[in-house]
Design a protein around this nucleic acid. Structure first.
Lengths: 265, 265
DNA sequence: TATTGACCCTCCCCTTACAGGAAGCATTAT
DNA sequence: ATAATGCTTCCTGTAAGGGGAGGGTCAATA
């Protein structure tokens, strides 16, 4: 039997860590003296501690490690978890690599003594008096991560019912705040002929900017439009919407073209 | 002036986030109505929000971003921070890559139906009745991260005073628990002749195992030794120590050779 | 045997960057 | 007038412990 101090010394886990592992049930001491609450560990628990440390070094969470330990006999589980973790790691690596690239570009900009926010000045704004469309649409509260899925849902419906779109698809944003997991969005497709399922979409005068690239630049476009609207003494007049000029499903992220409209007066 | 909801919609920052940024002083609304505490933002603050989001995407902490914003005129500061962050990122990438490699090896082991802890069985333990040394030593509370630095300190002292080592350097561990930032370690070098600065080091009978590879395998060695000592009915008899057969400074981590000794009886 | 120093315990607060929700005003639309 | 939004503050929770306070225990020494 080892005291917690001895166990700590051998396993290279701090006292705090050992007590915490006890608390969350990851590594409970083999024996606890009832009268003074001293923790005592078995020699064999040292190997469990090693295993935990190894899994932790692979960035498993303690919760995951607990599950793995509880099913230690199940080699298949361990195997799949490790496979998943490696997949995870490679994703992290590609994520960091692309970040590193972007950062490098910004550093270059800085070294050429340009402002890193300079790209904002590249965004052009046009006034558009928009056409009237007959649209078929679905309005929903969605998670922004599932946006594409909902898009495709409507697409297949159109195809299935043999309706013919007359213009690119669009999305209208009704949310009154930014809530990425519960976004009030209306996905719509303009049709050539009005039916009992279509409605009229007539936003009137709009300020428009074109976004080329990843969706994550969207706040820049919105900001730019709002600054422009304020500077030119217009007022917002209805829900903003976007028209997708390229298929967001098959187009690589960086060459997406999205037109962003704000109805104004 | 924009209400918090409008600002949220444009900037794609949630209400929670905006209130939090206000709280920590990262992005304070331009105006707060004193009678109802409503927050109102300037249009120009949208660009600040964009900047914050951009820096955040580069994994700067909010605290770092605050510093950068406070010194926005200082282009040199921004440049150095970004350089540092990129250095940081490349380190992360190499770290994840090496992790991924190790993980891959373990997955292979699993697929060959071997236990991933099997390496423990490879560790051989020998009984050694150790020689007596005259050592010159320094005992200190150190941070394990600075271990090598302290080692070199003693080395240069030896060189400077023209003393001749007779055996490899060693370290004796007196800590009663594992405390990586405050580790009670005695670094020692055996000398040929006793002087008034040396003392006798005579650990007696020891169990010994050799660690080849990175320091982070040390808990395995300790565990193995303790299991062995318990199984063979010995008892610990003094502070464990390590003898460095290779120069930890110039040897690549994975081919380090360290002998780990536990005095026993 | 008394004491001292080492060792152990529990409990509470702190960390990051918010999310979730409750309870209660304020404003706006119908 | 009423209802629906919108805004506020306040509390709790997250992962994996670290830091420290305050107090009980153990083993070796005087």
């Amino acid at each position: 039997m080892l005291t917690i101090g001895e166990f700590s010394k051998i396993s290279h886990l701090t006292l705090k860590t050992l007590r915490y592992y006890d608390e969350i049930g990851l590594l409970k001491p083999a024996f606890i003296d009832a009268k003074n609450n001293y923790r005592y560990y078995n020699i064999s628990q040292l190997e469990t501690a090693l295993l935990i440390a190894r899994l932790k070094s692979y960035l498993f969470s303690l919760e995951e490690i607990k599950v793995i330990l509880a099913n230690w006999e199940d080699a298949e589980l361990l195997h799949s978890k490790m496979k998943a973790k490696q997949e995870n790691l490679t994703q992290q690596i590609t994520f960091y690599s692309s970040l590193s690239k972007k950062l490098k570009l910004d550093i270059q900009l800085l070294e050429e003594e340009e402002n890193i926010m300079g790209y904002l000045d590249q965004i052009e704004i046009k006034l558009v008096d928009h056409l009237t469309y007959h649209i078929i649409s679905q309005r929903k509260q969605i998670n922004t991560a599932d946006f594409l899925r909902h898009f495709n849902e409507l697409f297949s419906k159109i195809l299935f019912e043999n309706l013919s779109p007359i213009a690119k698809p669009l999305a209208i944003f009704h949310s009154s705040e930014y809530e990425p997991e519960n976004y009030d969005v209306e996905i719509a497709i303009p049709l050539a002929l009005p039916t009992n399922k279509t409605k009229v979409f007539n936003p009137g005068l709009c300020a428009m900017a074109t976004l080329i690239g990843s969706y994550y630049e969207l706040p820049s476009i919105h900001t730019k439009l709002h600054v422009w609207i304020a500077e030119n003494n217009y007022k917002l007049n209805g829900a903003p919407f976007e028209i997708y000029q390229t298929d967001p499903y098959s187009t690589p992220e960086e060459s997406n073209i999205i037109e962003v409209y704000f109805p104004i007066k």
